[in-house]
């Protein structure tokens, strides 16, 4: 799979830390207790998508770096 870009929406992130629990090399918490990216290259795209799925808030968006296609979340998910 392709290189991906990870974005965390801080208008949604509640600091549940699930992303950090599942992929500590990629995600960490900032001083506000919200998720931020350390290094998107530390895991493969499939693993990153699986991790984004664990977020109860759909706060994590994964896009394909080269095509810009949104890989997660699907359009009908989230709120």
């Amino acid at each position: 799979m392709a290189q991906v870009k990870i974005e965390v929406n801080h208008n949604r992130c509640v600091g549940a830390q699930l992303c950090v629990y599942f992929l500590p090399g990629v995600f960490t918490l900032n001083a506000n207790g919200q998720s931020t990216i350390i290094d998107a290259a530390k895991a493969d795209a499939a693993t990153i998508i699986q991790t984004a799925e664990q977020c109860p808030q759909c706060a994590i968006t994964i896009t394909d770096s080269s095509t810009g296609e949104v890989l997660f979340p699907p359009a009908d998910l989230g709120f």
Binding site: V14, A16, G33
Partner: peptide, 16 residues
């Protein structure tokens, strides 16, 4: 919108 309420709490115990 945005509406980052705390009705389900925040943090590690946020409502399962």
């Amino acid at each position: 919108d945005p509406n980052l309420h705390v009705a389900f709490a925040h943090g590690i115990h946020v409502c399962l």
